[in-house]
Measured scan of single mutants.
Amino acid sequence: AEKTGIVNVSSSLNVREGASTSSKVIGSLSGNTKVTIVGEEGAFYKIEYKGSHSYVAKEYIKDIKDE
């Protein structure tokens, strides 16, 4: 089941290729951006990003809701 969340950062949140802080950064999301969460892996959520799937750190996503 998909969930949505809100990016909870003051500046921007790195979007990564994989579920690791050493993964390549492929983009960023600004605070209060709504994201669609399709899964989770460790400390990361797998999200829909620009037509494919990428990862963001869970600690920076708030207001998780089931869609």
Rank of each mutant, 00 (worst) to 15 (best):
A1Q: 13
A1K: 14
A1Y: 15
A1W: 15
A1L: 14
E2C: 15
E2L: 15
E2A: 15
E2M: 15
E2N: 15
E2R: 15
K3P: 04
K3G: 05
K3Y: 09
K3Q: 07
T4S: 09
T4V: 11
T4C: 13
T4R: 09
G5F: 06
G5T: 03
G5K: 04
G5V: 05
G5M: 06
G5Y: 06
I6P: 02
I6D: 02
I6H: 06
I6T: 08
I6C: 11
V7H: 02
V7L: 05
V7T: 07
N8Y: 10
N8K: 12
N8T: 12
N8V: 14
V9Q: 07
V9L: 08
V9F: 07
V9G: 11
V9P: 08
S10N: 10
S10V: 13
S10G: 11
S10E: 13
S10T: 12
S11N: 11
S11P: 09
S11A: 11
S12T: 13
S12N: 10
L13W: 03
L13M: 06
L13K: 02
L13I: 15
N14P: 15
N14D: 15
N14A: 15
N14Q: 14
N14F: 12
N14T: 12
V15I: 07
V15W: 01
R16K: 06
R16S: 06
E17S: 10
E17W: 06
G18F: 14
G18Q: 12
G18C: 13
A19M: 04
A19E: 02
A19I: 05
S20G: 05
S20H: 08
S20F: 08
T21A: 12
S22Q: 11
S22C: 13
S22D: 14
S22K: 11
S22R: 10
S22M: 11
S22A: 11
S23P: 01
S23N: 04
S23L: 03
S23T: 06
S23A: 13
K24W: 04
K24H: 06
V25A: 05
V25C: 07
V25P: 03
V25F: 04
I26Y: 02
I26T: 05
I26H: 03
G27K: 01
G27W: 03
G27V: 02
G27F: 03
G27C: 05
G27H: 02
G27P: 01
S28Y: 13
S28C: 14
S28R: 13
S28I: 12
L29S: 01
L29Q: 01
S30C: 14
S30Y: 10
G31F: 13
G31D: 11
G31A: 15
G31P: 15
G31K: 14
G31T: 13
N32E: 08
N32M: 10
N32W: 12
T33R: 06
T33V: 09
T33E: 10
K34G: 04
K34E: 07
K34H: 08
K34R: 13
K34P: 07
K34Y: 10
V35T: 01
V35H: 01
V35F: 04
V35C: 03
T36G: 04
T36M: 09
T36C: 11
T36N: 09
T36R: 14
T36H: 11
I37R: 00
I37D: 00
I37S: 00
I37P: 00
V38E: 03
V38W: 06
V38C: 08
V38S: 04
V38H: 05
G39Q: 03
E40R: 04
E40G: 03
E40Y: 05
E40P: 01
E40A: 07
E41P: 01
E41M: 08
G42H: 04
G42W: 03
G42K: 05
G42I: 02
G42F: 04
A43T: 08
A43V: 08
A43S: 10
A43H: 08
A43P: 09
F44K: 01
F44Q: 01
Y45W: 12
Y45E: 00
Y45A: 01
Y45C: 03
K46T: 05
I47G: 00
I47D: 00
I47K: 00
I47H: 01
I47Y: 00
E48Y: 12
E48H: 09
E48I: 15
Y49F: 12
Y49V: 02
K50P: 02
K50R: 10
K50A: 10
G51C: 07
G51F: 06
G51D: 07
S52Y: 10
S52R: 13
S52A: 11
S52I: 11
S52T: 13
S52M: 13
H53W: 13
H53N: 06
H53T: 09
S54C: 14
S54R: 11
S54Q: 07
S54H: 09
S54T: 05
Y55S: 00
Y55R: 00
Y55C: 01
V56S: 00
V56L: 04
V56D: 00
A57Q: 13
A57C: 14
A57I: 08
K58S: 05
K58D: 00
K58L: 02
K58M: 07
K58F: 03
E59V: 11
E59T: 08
E59R: 12
Y60S: 08
Y60D: 08
Y60K: 06
Y60A: 08
I61P: 00
I61C: 03
I61T: 01
I61S: 01
I61M: 04
K62S: 14
K62C: 11
D63V: 15
D63I: 15
D63T: 14
D63Y: 12
I64A: 07
K65I: 12
K65N: 11
K65C: 11
K65T: 14
K65D: 11
K65M: 11
D66L: 13
D66R: 07
D66P: 12
D66H: 12
D66Y: 14
E67I: 14
E67D: 11
E67Q: 13
E67Y: 10
